[in-house]
């Protein structure tokens, strides 16, 4: 296995002419949990989509696992990199079992039903996500948290060594969010899988990520091991908030505590999107 998960070279991307990524260069190590963090609209989700071939960059090159993105066939890429997008959608009468089986698309033979390996991968994914009991339920009958776990199960059933998650904790309450990230941690340590996760909650990134990439206005503000990137100085400059990073008894990693807008100069322009809208 090559030791770079992905490498981006001067990648730019835009939506309908509005720039989202600006000449980004980035090398990501394999076998780690990598968190993409940054303010709204800083380009972290776009970077993930570009890396997975879901959004065509306007310039630059992307390599995944040592091969140019354009050289992969869809199915080969799917066997290498799975991804859970931000708002996945499937018909509400689809059953959980059928949804998870769809994750096996890249592995299934064109002929006949699912193979023993397909079934085993699905059962395992359902077990890990604790969805085995709900296998026969239709998606319409699930709660928000269960639905999200069903999609996670589908992503896991794809059996890819590298998994991208775009804000996976979005619809989850705090207990389920921790559960999901514990699962990520477990899969990363026990099976040496790589994860790239877009996370809004910096404390989650601090607690679970090995490596953090901090985005700011379509560029990379900081990139490196978690504790080197998530420092008081960098956070307050990127997010425009004051914060302290302090250790808690019994926890391996420190926690970030913030109490709002920075009093310093030069940060007002980076306030949240909502603020900016009102100002202009």
């Amino acid at each position: 296995m090559p030791d770079t998960l992905a490498s981006l070279d001067r990648v730019s991307a835009a939506y309908d002419g509005a720039p989202a990524l600006n000449e980004v260069c980035l090398d990501l190590p394999d076998g780690r949990i990598i968190a993409f963090c940054g303010p709204n609209g800083s380009g972290k989700s776009t970077a993930l989509k570009v890396m997975r071939g879901l959004h065509r960059p306007d310039g630059g090159t992307v390599e995944i696992a040592g091969r140019m993105l354009g050289d992969w066939t869809q199915k080969d890429l799917a066997r290498q990199v799975a991804m859970l997008s931000q708002s996945p959608d499937a018909p509400s009468d689809l059953s959980v079992g059928d949804l998870v089986l769809m994750g096996r698309f890249a592995h299934r033979s064109r002929f006949g039903g699912p193979s023993a390996a397909d079934r085993a991968a699905c059962d395992r994914a359902l077990d890990i996500t604790e969805m085995a009991d709900l296998k026969g339920r239709a998606l319409a009958q699930l709660s928000g948290g269960q639905l999200q776990r069903a999609w996670v199960a589908m992503t896991l059933a794809q059996d890819a060594p590298r998994i991208f998650l775009d804000e996976p904790t979005n619809h989850l309450d705090i207990a389920h969010a921790f559960e999901l990230l514990d699962l990520v941690m477990h899969l990363s340590r026990s099976e040496n899988r790589s994860f790239v996760i877009v996370l809004h909650d910096l404390n989650m990134a601090m607690r679970y990520a090995d490596h953090v990439v901090l985005f700011e206005k379509g560029r990379i503000a900081a990139n490196g091991p978690t504790t080197e990137v998530l420092t008081e100085e960098i956070i307050s400059s990127v997010f425009g908030i004051d914060c302290r990073i302090m250790p808690l008894d019994g926890l391996e990693r420190p926690v970030i505590v913030s109490w709002g807008k920075a009093s310093g100069v030069g940060v007002s322009g980076q306030a949240s999107g909502k603020m900016r809208k009102i100002c202009t």
Binding site: K49, R52, G53, L54, Q74, K75, L77, A78, R79, A82, M83, L84, S85, S87, P88, D89, A90, M102, G103, F105, A106, W151, M154, Q158
Partner: peptide, 9 residues
């Protein structure tokens, strides 16, 4: 949805 379908291969 198109993204999930594409990601699955």
């Amino acid at each position: 949805d198109p993204q999930s379908a594409a990601v699955s291969g």
